[in-house]
Structure formats: structure tokens, C-alpha cells
């Protein structure tokens, strides 16, 4: 009897140790790791999850919905307990979130919104629209309400692309002497944006400004303008708050950008996952994170 109770105690102890060892696992699924901004988002999410005591693994969807779908299949079958998710497509990614939901795995979207308010547990998103309204106002004032400009938008299937473009145009389109001579996608990619602008300038050599949907593309546009000897004449506007663009703003080579806070979004998503594990079930569906306008007058603060 004495031995039996001892064995039982040991079994209970072993079980509790196993439980402690088997920490909940958090998957960080990121649209692409081919862009430094998303690397910061991914690493910050994983780092925050680990700080909270969880295992964390980063999955790269390589901007490909099919790869993202495979990532979800893998992480669901591997027993992950929560997903910090940066979707590849506002519509296409909903099915993946629903797969996780069916498997009772909470999904916290970061930065990119999906077109559903009943799929993800919560969506923590940059307030792209408001940020680009401020850039739009700065754009109009800088150009003194007239001129020709080019817009290089991001990925066509990404809601952020249209939120940024929409915020910008909600201002700029009210000024009829500002003429958009071309609008093309640069896929949020520096080299693609550079090539796109080079091609556009062959047909439109006398532009006054370029608005880019992210800073990588703003750097590509700036590079194209430099090669064409027009960097001093054509004003460039970006979005993200990348350090190299902030540096260019300090040097008066780029006019403005919108400062996003990927670390804040990643930290909030990890905290929400932690709270979910501890029993919380009610989360705001969308949490906007403020974007701040960075221009030459305040660039030294960033």
C-alpha cells in the first residue's frame, strides 16, 4: 500500500513536470521574410511570445497563398496552440483562418486586415488610412496644389495597399490641378518599384512627385530618380518609417513617410495570445495602431 501511494505520487509529479515542459506553442505566420519590415514584425512577435514563456516558430508564406495554406496545414497538424498571423491576401487568407478556427486555434492578425469580421480572434492593424491622409495633406502643401505625379501601389490583393491609396486620394483628389499621370503596382518591392518608375518616366519625363505605398518602393523610386538625374526635382513620399527613409528625410532627399509600429502590433498580438491561454475570450475584432507623419521638421525625433 505504501509503495502504491509512492508510485501514484511519482506519476502525478511526472505528469505535472510534463505539463510544465509542454509549453503552449505559438506559430508566427508571416506573408514574406523578403522585406526587412516583415522580418522585424516576425522576430518581434516570436520574441514576445518567448518572453511570455511560450515556444514560438516563424513560418514564411513567401507572399504565396498556397504556401500560406501549407503552413496552416502543417502547424495545425503539429499541435500549435495559437497563431500570430500576417496574411498574404485579404480574401484568400480567410479560409486558412477558418481552418484554424475549426481546430479551435485562435488567430491574431498583425498589420494586414482580412475581409471578414468573424474569422480571426482579433486583428491588430496599422491605421494606414489615417497615416496616408496626413501624407496626402503634406503632399498637397509641398506641391502647392499643382503638378503631375505617379503613384506606385503595393500588392494588389492586400488591403493595406488600398487603405493607403484610399487615404492619400481622399485628400489629393480634391485638388484638380494635381494630375496622377500613372498608377502602377510595385508589389511593395524596391527593385520592382525602381523598374516601374524608370519605365513610367520614359513616357512621362516631367513628373513632380511620386507617392509610394511603402518605404522599400520609395527607396527604389528615389534610386530611379537619382539614375535619371532628377532626384533634386521630383519629390518622393513613402510609408512605413524605415530607418533609411527617415535618414533621407533628415537629408531633405525624401519628403515624408508614415511611421508604423510593427513591434507594438507584434507585442499586442503576443499579449492577446497569452490572455487567450489564460481564459480571455472577448477581444476587439480590430485594433488600429496609430501611424505618425515623419517629415523634415520632426525627423530627428525618430
Amino acid at each position: 500500500m505504501k509503495y502504491l501511494s509512492l508510485i501514484l505520487s511519482l506519476l502525478i509529479l511526472a505528469c505535472s513536470i510534463k505539463k510544465e515542459v509542454e509549453k503552449p506553442k505559438i506559430a508566427v505566420v508571416i506573408s514574406t521574410l523578403n522585406n526587412p519590415w516583415f522580418v522585424v514584425l516576425a522576430e518581434s512577435a516570436a520574441e514576445n511570445a518567448k518572453k511570455l514563456g511560450y515556444e514560438a516558430k516563424i513560418f514564411d508564406s513567401q507572399n504565396n497563398p498556397a504556401t500560406e495554406s501549407d503552413n496552416f496545414e502543417n502547424l495545425i497538424s503539429s499541435g500549435f496552440d495559437a497563431i500570430l498571423f500576417n496574411p498574404t491576401d485579404a480574401d484568400g487568407s480567410i479560409a486558412n483562418i477558418l481552418k484554424a478556427k475549426t481546430a479551435k486555434i485562435p488567430v491574431f492578425c498583425m498589420d494586414r486586415e482580412v475581409n471578414a469580421d468573424d474569422a480571426a480572434t482579433s486583428q491588430i492593424l496599422s491605421d494606414n488610412y489615417s497615416g496616408c491622409v496626413e501624407i496626402g495633406i503634406e503632399f498637397v502643401k509641398t506641391l502647392r496644389e499643382k503638378g503631375k505625379y505617379v503613384e506606385i501601389i503595393g500588392l494588389v490583393g492586400d488591403n493595406n495597399t488600398w487603405a493607403r491609396s484610399g487615404g492619400f486620394h481622399s485628400v489629393v483628389d480634391k485638388f484638380p490641378n494635381l494630375k496622377m499621370v500613372a498608377q502602377q503596382s510595385g508589389d511593395f518591392d524596391r527593385n520592382k518599384a525602381m523598374e516601374v518608375l524608370e519605365t513610367i518616366m520614359q513616357a512621362q519625363p516631367d513628373i513632380d512627385a511620386v507617392f509610394c505605398g511603402n518605404d522599400a518602393m520609395a527607396m527604389g523610386a528615389y534610386q530611379a530618380l537619382q539614375s535619371a538625374g532628377k532626384a533634386d526635382k521630383v519629390r518622393v513620399f513613402g510609408f512605413d518609417g524605415a530607418s533609411e527613409v527617415v535618414e533621407k528625410i533628415r537629408e531633405n532627399k525624401i519628403v515624408a513617410t508614415g511611421m508604423q509600429y510593427p513591434k507594438v502590433m507584434a507585442k499586442t498580438a503576443a499579449q492577446y495570445a497569452d490572455e487567450y491561454f489564460k481564459g480571455r475570450r472577448e477581444f476587439p475584432q480590430r485594433v488600429p495602431v496609430e501611424v505618425e507623419l515623419v517629415k523634415s521638421s520632426n525627423a530627428n525625433k525618430y
Partner: peptide, 10 residues
């Protein structure tokens, strides 16, 4: 929460 997407809210 009155609107389904941020786009509509904006």
C-alpha cells in the same frame, strides 16, 4: 464595431 471593415469605417 458598427462597420464590418476599416474601409467602410473610413
Amino acid at each position: 464595431t458598427d462597420f464590418k471593415t476599416n474601409a467602410d469605417f473610413n
